[in-house]
Write a protein that binds this DNA or RNA. Sequence first.
DNA 1: GCGAGTAATAGCCAGTTCCTATCGACTAGT
DNA 2: ACTAGTCGATAGGAACTGGCTATTACTCGC
Lengths: 296, 296
Amino acid sequence: MNLRDLRYFVALAETRHFGKAAERSFVSQPTLSAQIKKLETYLGVQLIERQPRKVALTETGLKILPIARRIVQESDEIVSVARNEHDPLSGKLKLGLIPTIGPYLLPVITRKLRKQLPRLKLMLYEHQTQPLLEKLRAGDLDLGILALPVPLDGLEARPLYDENFTLAVPTNSPLAKRANVKLDDLQGETLLLLEDGHCLRDQALEVCSRIDVKESEDYRATSLETLRQMVAAGLGITLLPELATRGPFGSGHGLVVKEFARPVPSRSVGAVWRKSTARTDAIKAVCDAIHSSMSS
Amino acid sequence: MNLRDLRYFVALAETRHFGKAAERSFVSQPTLSAQIKKLETYLGVQLIERQPRKVALTETGLKILPIARRIVQESDEIVSVARNEHDPLSGKLKLGLIPTIGPYLLPVITRKLRKQLPRLKLMLYEHQTQPLLEKLRAGDLDLGILALPVPLDGLEARPLYDENFTLAVPTNSPLAKRANVKLDDLQGETLLLLEDGHCLRDQALEVCSRIDVKESEDYRATSLETLRQMVAAGLGITLLPELATRGPFGSGHGLVVKEFARPVPSRSVGAVWRKSTARTDAIKAVCDAIHSSMSS
DNA sequence: GCGAGTAATAGCCAGTTCCTATCGACTAGT
DNA sequence: ACTAGTCGATAGGAACTGGCTATTACTCGC
């Protein structure tokens, strides 16, 4: 059996005329004739009674007609659903960000995204790097924004922008008065860090590996905001990604943000997605939007 | 698009494995692979995300899956409806009989029909010959039982049995005492007949055309039963088809039924149906049943 | 009887669907 | 790290299907 045959059958049932049904189906009359006969043979039942100058449905034909009609209708529905979904820049896209990027990047890009990709519904999630990668691979997320590099297997990555690290010190720290700070100036300071699992923790340790700083042993922050509070309380210093010091997140409240002298330590922020994804267009569009937002 | 493709898609969505889906669909894996891809191309949307070792549905695929499932289900329903209807000796058959046959033939054949064609639902109608033929041609009836011959255009006929005419006379008639009657004996009698439109009326006139009988001018019966009453009332004689004199319809109540001497006048009773009918099997079965009932 | 109308049949071509064989990518076990 | 195994994609060829035009068969109305 075949969708086409059902269409022919419905057309014939509605026109009650082989020629007209064929015309309406954009095929020749013999073709429609043959297909109807084939359908009847397949079903093992006569659907149409061919009276001279008159086409009548048999009992069975009458029973089958409404089902055939529904099938035809639903198959059209599939096409129309597909056509609506056809726009690659529409539908849901599940976007995951790591906690040291998400809350600071999103305000910067949402307006642009809403304007450039109005039909794309971004579902936002926040996960640390490892769970984020796992959820990407599992298909729970379509796109991740995180600090590169990460182990890519089955995943594809694209760097979006470089983000400088800044130094956050208490207002009363001697470092707060310096015009600029070099890494070496941190020698002997107490470094406050996020808890395990945050990539920023590892990046800060990496940045400071060359010099002798001591990590606060009894406290590890669960978020950048608590970390910031700790610094303001005078318990130590920390590295903050530049984006987390913009606007309302800048100096003040007992905390001063200092830029590093060159070479400025930084991290690479990028996007990651499954190689096999079906959303390459949407992903590219989102990446482009973020990239252009951050490079202007 | 194709029903087969939808089946493949549903199988793939359920197994999440090209190989297994192919096996379940009784085709090779490359075939299923190609058809899925063809379906995607046709719809212009990716339905499946091919991850290594994992097959996942896209958003669109998820939306289309339930529709595809319903279509597949309904197409199976068509097949099963057809299979149920497949039995040519089941379903409805609209049977029309003329008034001078129906009430007398039916009691004779219903038991046999019910036994031999238990799944055939006979819808019974009573019409005079002309309307019966029209309704046959219009498709309102599938089969007619009437007196042959009739003009057949587009119709096919089959004689079923010959039915002798008998003579009904009042008990006090001189004819009632005769051992047997010849046609010539009717000379001078008053002949009671059915109203216009009943073929029996024409048959009786035909039978008596050779001899001089006078038709009652002021009365024409609407049914055999009223005709019988008239005879019993002594207003004349009439011809009755043999079947209408059996059992409860025989002599008595002021009326005597006499058989004719040879050559016995008779009429041919037969079946008529559209050449184009889709119910030849059922029609043949009903005809056979009537024929064997009447020839035993 | 003849022409118009209508569906069925015949014969042929092109596109589709299917198969087997093989490849390429990835995984897991040694 | 290498190898065998799994799994989907690709290639090439055979068989089938669906489509066409031309023609036939049958009714019907004049």
